[in-house]
Amino acid sequence: MTLEIFLQNAANGITLGSLYALLAIGYTMVYGILRLINFAHGEIFMISTYFAFYGTAIFALPWQVAFVVAIVLTALLGVVIERAAYRPLRDAPRISALISAIGVSFLMANLGLVIFGGRPKTFYRPPIFQVPIELGGVRVVALFFVIPLLTAILLVALNYIVYKTKTGLAMRAAQWDFDTTRLMGVDVDRAISITFAIGSALAAVGGIMWGLRFAEINPNMGLFPGLKCFIAAVFGGIGNISGAVLGGFILGFGEIMLVAFLPGLAGYRDAFAFVVLILILLVRPTGLLGDKQRVKV
């Protein structure tokens, strides 16, 4: 493998890793506060791409506007799903909410098939992202720089919200115990809604960039990225935001490199994540950066 090809693959890996990281954060944030794997997260990601698609294709909005509207709508969708499907089960056994999450996932994927149609749609790709850029002998389009850069900016912003603002403090407190957090005067329901809004907005950014990168969207596209990013979150240590980012990057990078170095295994690229999952569960079930499981009292 020449250096150019390696660098080309590295750019691919970093890009995919960024997208996985953005999606994995939603799983880990929701788990952190509700102890719930939001299986509908992959479908939230899928629907965000359709919001953006309809914005540009049907409503003929300028792409900048369409993308922002799609992100806002997706954030609202996440909040609505929590209200409708998870909040009524807040005091029920945890398995009930999990089943509800799986139900929402199926519901949205199938509603997508009915409403959007099964045939893939072509995602609008603004030319500005396709400008070729040459760096160190490698020619890639601008998008390969935009995706990691935007991801980095969002991670900094997220870090600021979670660790420097009152809202973030409320979210982190609620992760420990709802009643004690309420006694501080925190509106826990609001903190949970904000968590869903942030996670879903990040999934929307990932979804839109996914559309820009791969050009095609379909109602089943949430399934594999959703599963892989759930694995990324578990791999990094579920509940831990840095862990989800790390897990997302390792999974995305690893998947691309597996195909690059072992082309014979290219057909197994989707299996890669699951092998990683099995290994991490065997070796370090709490994930790379996960704490020892702490039991809520």
């Binding site: 982190r172 407190a173 420990w176 115990d177 957090t181 006694l183 501080m184 702490r294």
Partner: peptide, 26 residues
């Protein structure tokens, strides 16, 4: 009305400072 709950119930993952800031949340 403020409560010092049974079993202390401080936030173990937050710093002492952050615990105090939560006390003044409203």
């Amino acid at each position: 009305i403020s409560m010092v709950p049974e079993g202390r119930q401080i936030f173990p993952d937050l710093t002492v400072m952050e615990n105090l800031r939560l006390g003044a949340f409203t």
